[in-house]
Every structure is written in structure tokens, then in C-alpha cells.
Design a protein around this nucleic acid. Structure first.
Lengths: 142, 142
DNA sequence: GTTGACTCTGACATCGACGTGAGGGTTTAG
DNA sequence: CTAAACCCTCACGTCGATGTCAGAGTCAAC
């Protein structure tokens, strides 16, 4: 199939698919005309790429791990010990990111739940004209 | 105090402090020379900004909510109902981001824990020469 | 063969919170 | 008074995964 069909089947833009190839993540055959020719296998590869991108891995890392991936019933599996180290590191990174988000959310929750001190209740600029409290509007009139 | 002192007291770079002002988050007085003059209050404001930034809010959102914030014993509180709506929306956004990360981490965990199919054990390019499995090197010789 | 849909390769634009450096005034300690 | 330290305003650079546009070639149906 050509790039448009792959784009439709994966929901990934053609631009992104070309970008993946540029980054060494995807290597379609080429017709004599230069058109990219993809196989059904590439559909799975693209899904793997999206999965890893969603996991927060960069294309460079994905380029490292992708050759070591093998599909098993829709499930990616790591075929190399070195890869496991990388994946574990990424996993830790994700965990750390989650902890940061959790802390941030708790902060927000605390703000939301905090009682408003009575002496400040009427002194604040709570109108819909937000942002004018500083004197200079962030968006000047066009 | 001047910007260097505020930077030291908050641990925020001078560049960032000027950026916050540019975004309407901070409005120090100006000396005749043009030097910014900050008060102790600004120290708290900067802390609030960092808190909200750490929570994943953008400067535009912070510019909206900051005029409605009040400090109470080191704890930020929302003084406007409208603000609560915004904060709740941000909270939901953070929760969604956490869920994405959780899903991504579970995928990584599954990959890590997945058994390596025997028939694929020796067929993959697990050497340090990564990226050559596709036939075309991502960086062509110049 | 012709039209219209599809594809190609560049290459510049985007977003966000700053980093960094140039070129030039200001403050302050000695 | 002078030198060092501090501060000012531009303004461009960063990172990463795309969006978008231009100009040109290709494929499929009629």
C-alpha cells in the first residue's frame, strides 16, 4: 500500500510517517517512481512506534529498541537483554513523571479545597475581565 | 530588592523572572534607571508561579488565575468561583495525563515481562550496531 | 490523453519556557 | 573617581514531533 492508505489505516499523518522513516524507524520499499510501498507489517510497526512514543520515548530511543522488538499476538516483546536495561530506565522515567504529576495534582487539590480567608474575600479581582489586575492587558487591542 | 536578589531568594533565573513579567505574571516597580524593584510579596508570587507551573499550567492560564489567588500560611487558596472551574479543568487534565502515563508504563512493563519467542531469539539485530536492521542507514554518507 | 487524485522532496513554521550573548547603562564599594 | 558588579533591552537559539506550503512528478480512471 502507499502512504495515504497507511496513513488511513493507522491514523498517523503522512508527514509523521515520512518523519519516522527519516528517523530510521520505518523503511518502506520504493517503487521506481520513488513512491513508498508499505506492507501490512508496517501497520504493526507504526502501531509499535505510536505505543513507544505514547510511552514518552523519543524517536532516537525507539530507533534503538525497535530492531529488537518482536510481535507476539499483538504484544511487543523485548528480544535483547540490552534493550531490557533501556526499557527499565524508561519505565523509571515514566514513574518519576507520574509522581511529579501526582504531586502537582495534590497541590491543585489543596488549592481548590483551601478555605478563602474572609479578609481577602472582597479584595480580589474576580471579574471576568481577567488579567487586567496588572495594568497592562496581555493581549493589546488589535 | 533587585532582580538578582529575587533570583537568589527564589532559585529562579533572572531570565525566567523577566519572562514572567513579559507574560503578565509579575509586575515589579521600576526605578528611574529602569531597574526592576521587587518586594517580599513578589517572592511569594514567584513561589506561586512555580507551583502552578509545576502543576503543568501554562503561563497564560497562570496569568488568569494568579490575580485570584491568595496565600494563607504558605498555602495557596482560590478566591474566585470561576477560578475553581479552571483549576478543576486543569486537575482533570493532569489526571488524564497520569492515566496516559500509566497506560504507557503498563505497556512497557508488558514488553519487559513478555517471554522472548524462541524462533525469534537469534534472528534479531541485538548488537551495538543499532539501526542497521533496516538496510538503509538513517544518516547517509556525506 | 487528459484530468484529478496522489505522491515526492525540500524547507520553513509551530509551541513553551526559558538559555545565551551582544551592546550598553547603573550602582556601589574602595 | 574608578572598577567591578549589577542591570537593561533586544533578539536569536533550543528541543521534538509534527503542520504546512511550494513546485514538480506519477498513477488511475474515463
Amino acid at each position: 500500500m502507499r502512504i495515504g492508505a497507511l496513513s488511513q489505516r493507522t491514523g498517523v499523518s503522512e508527514r509523521a510517517l515520512r518523519y519516522y522513516e527519516e528517523q530510521g524507524l520505518l523503511s518502506p520499499l520504493r517503487r521506481p517512481s520513488g513512491y513508498r510501498e508499505y506492507t501490512d507489517e508496517h501497520v504493526h510497526t507504526v502501531r509499535s512506534i505510536r505505543t513507544l512514543l505514547a510511552a514518552g520515548l523519543g524517536t532516537a530511543t525507539i530507533a534503538d529498541v525497535l530492531p529488537c522488538m518482536v510481535e507476539e499476538g499483538g504484544q511487543l516483546a523485548a528480544a535483547c537483554p540490552d534493550l531490557l536495561v533501556d526499557l527499565a530506565r524508561e519505565r523509571d522515567r515514566i514513574t518519576a513523571a507520574m509522581n511529579e504529576l501526582r504531586a502537582a495534582r495534590e497541590m491543585l487539590d489543596a488549592i481548590i479545597a483551601a478555605p478563602v480567608p474572609p479578609e481577602a474575600a472582597g479584595t480580589l479581582d474576580c471579574d471576568e475581565a481577567v488579567g487586567t489586575a496588572f495594568g497592562a492587558p496581555p493581549v493589546p487591542s488589535p
